[in-house]
């Protein structure tokens, strides 16, 4: 905690940090950029703090990456911090999306080549999200128990298409039990 106090960022650096995340994340992949900026470059959070915040942001309904920005901002500097991160993340992208939307609605559907290029960028962005999962798994899953929890959630929701609340109602208690047991061992 003392360590975190030492690097507690200013509102301006929160705003600029998340503006950077928002502007770099063409085609998605925000979580990967957020981890790079918040954990690796700036050291505001440890990997474990980032991961638990990321999990909670996925569990709360709504856009995960916006939730994550608000979560980190609140942890760092309360209400003003949450606002700084939210506005940093969204301000420029909102203006860009509205501008692009006005152009798109003014044209007649845009060019075919543009949409092909966009499809390629979208495919890469999806790959970045999956690649982040691979990297996080290599860095954090050292034991068989947590690795099986990850596998069950990925297969259950991603492939078998089971409802997320149901899967978590089963897997979250199991994961808690593993963590509790590992703590005492």
């Amino acid at each position: 905690m003392a360590n975190r106090e030492a690097v507690r960022p200013t509102l301006l650096s929160l705003f600029l940090g998340f503006a950077h995340i928002g502007m770099m994340s063409f085609g998605g992949g925000l979580a990967a950029w957020t981890r790079r900026e918040v954990v690796q470059t700036r050291g505001w959070l440890t990997e474990q703090q980032f991961l638990s915040g990321y999990a909670l942001s996925q569990l709360v309904p709504g856009a995960t990456n916006v939730n994550l920005a608000v979560f980190i901002g609140t942890q760092m500097r309360g209400v003003p911090g949450a606002l700084a991160c939210f506005l940093g993340l969204t301000t420029l992208p909102v203006l860009i999306v509205l501008g692009a939307g006005a152009l798109y609605m003014g044209s007649n559907g845009g060019s075919v080549w543009l949409s092909v290029a966009l499809a390629g960028m979208g495919a890469v962005a999806l790959g970045m999200n999956l690649g982040l999962g691979v990297r996080l798994a290599f860095d954090n899953l050292r034991r068989i128990g947590p690795a099986l929890v990850t596998l069950c959630i990925a297969v259950g929701i991603g492939i078998l298409r089971l409802p997320l609340p149901m899967v978590l109602a089963v897997m979250m208690p199991i994961s808690l039990a593993i963590a509790w047991w590992g703590r005492k061992a």
Partner: peptide, 26 residues
């Protein structure tokens, strides 16, 4: 304890949403 329990959940959800999006958009 909860933080350590949430880490594998976050990673599992990352894969799950990536796979779901692949199916929806590709």
């Amino acid at each position: 304890v909860v933080e350590r329990a949430l880490a594998p959940v976050a990673i599992g959800l990352t894969f799950a949403s990536g796979l779901a999006l692949m199916r929806a958009t590709e």
